[in-house]
C-alpha cells in the first residue's frame, strides 16, 4: 500500500511538472519550488536543471536559438584550445572541461606554465566527473558543469565556511551524544568537510543518490548539504562511537561505504524538509 501511494504520488507529481513545463514563458520560480519539494522525474531532470541554471531561457520558443548559441560557444572554445595544443587526444574529458572553463573565466594558465590540474581544481574536477556520469551530451555536460559551479560559488560561496557550524547545530538537536563523542575525541573540526560541501558530495556518493541532492542545490538550497552530512554521521553512529582516534574517523568518512547512500539521501531530505522548508521557526 505504501508503494502504491508513493507510486500514485509520483504520477501526480510528474503530471503537475508537465503542466508547469507547458507554460510559455516558463515560471522559473514555480519550477524551483517544485524541485525543492519533490524529486525531479529523471526524464525531465536535465531539462529542468538547464532552465534553473539559465542555460535555457524561460521562453520555450527561444530554446532552439539559444541552444544553437550554446553549442557554437562550446565549439569555439574547444577548437581554440585544441589549436593552441592545450589539449591532445589523451586529455581526460573532465580536464578538457576544466581548461574550457578556465579560458572563459580568463584563468587559463600560460601553456608554457601548464601543469597537471592543481589542488584548487579538485572541486571542479569532482563535480565534472559526476556530471559526466549524469549527462551524455558533451555540450550539455560542459554547460551544466560550468553553470552549476558558477551558480554554486556565486550564491553559496560565502556560506560554505559556515556549514560546519550549522552541522554542529543540527547534530546537537538530533543526537547530542554523538556530537559529544565527536567533540571529546576532537574529530568534529577535522571531519572531511572539504570532500563534502564545496563539491556537493560529488565523489562521495554514486550519481544515482547524488541527483536528488543536486536537485535541491540547483533549485537554490545549500543547506541540504548540512543535512546530508548529519545523516551520514547518524547512519554510521555505532561505528563512529566505537572510534576514538580522529584520524580513524576521518579515514572512515573519507572512504565511506557506498551501499546505503540512497537511504542516507532520503533521510537527509526528510530532515531538511522538517527543519527548513516546513515553517517551524528554525531556518
Amino acid at each position: 500500500a505504501y508503494y502504491e501511494k508513493m507510486g500514485f504520488r509520483g504520477v501526480e507529481e510528474k503530471k503537475s511538472l508537465e503542466i508547469l513545463l507547458k507554460d510559455n514563458p516558463l515560471d522559473v520560480e514555480k519550477l524551483c519550488t517544485f524541485s525543492q519539494r519533490f524529486p525531479l522525474p529523471s526524464m525531465y531532470r536535465i531539462h529542468v536543471w538547464k532552465v534553473l541554471l539559465g542555460i535555457l531561457p524561460p521562453h520555450s520558443d527561444s530554446h532552439a536559438l539559444v541552444a544553437g548559441y550554446r553549442r557554437e560557444q562550446y565549439t569555439d572554445v574547444l577548437e581554440a584550445l585544441q589549436v593552441m595544443r592545450f589539449l591532445h587526444g589523451a586529455t581526460p574529458q573532465v580536464e578538457v572541461y576544466l581548461r574550457m572553463f578556465q579560458l572563459e573565466a580568463q584563468e587559463l594558465p600560460r601553456r608554457s606554465e601548464l601543469t597537471a590540474p592543481e589542488e584548487e581544481d579538485e572541486d571542479f574536477l569532482a563535480i565534472g566527473k559526476a556530471m559526466e556520469e549524469i549527462v551524455d551530451d558533451p555540450v550539455d555536460c560542459y554547460w551544466l558543469i560550468k553553470c552549476f559551479v558558477n551558480q554554486f560559488n556565486n550564491k553559496f560561496g560565502d556560506s560554505i565556511p559556515h556549514l560546519p557550524k550549522s552541522l554542529e547545530h543540527y547534530l546537537s538537536l538530533e543526537d547530542i551524544r554523538l556530537l559529544a563523542h565527536l567533540k571529546s575525541c576532537s574529530a568534529l573540526r577535522k571531519l572531511p568537510y572539504n570532500l563534502w560541501f564545496p563539491r556537493c558530495f560529488a565523489g562521495c556518493f554514486p550519481e544515482s543518490s547524488l541527483l536528488r541532492v543536486w536537485d535541491k542545490v540547483v533549485s537554490g538550497s545549500c543547506k541540504i548539504l548540512v543535512f546530508v552530512a548529519v545523516e551520514i554521521l547518524l547512519s554510521y553512529k555505532i561505528m563512529l562511537m566505537g572510534m576514538s582516534k580522529p584520524e580513524a574517523i576521518v579515514q572512515f568518512l573519507s572512504n565511506m561505504p557506498q551501499e546505503n547512500t540512497d537511504a542516507i539521501v532520503t533521510k537527509a531530505i526528510d530532515l531538511w524538509h522538517n527543519y527548513v522548508t516546513q515553517p517551524r521557526g528554525a531556518s
Binding site: 531561457p57 521562453h59 579560458l103
Partner: peptide
C-alpha cells in the same frame, strides 16, 4: 524579456569568442 534573453545568450557567445582571441 524574450528579446533580452536571446540577446544575453548571443552576447555570452561573443564574449567567449573575445576571450579566445585574447588567449590566442
Amino acid at each position: 524579456s524574450q528579446a533580452r534573453e536571446q540577446l544575453q545568450a548571443s552576447e555570452s557567445r561573443y564574449q567567449a569568442q573575445r576571450r579566445v582571441t585574447q588567449v590566442l
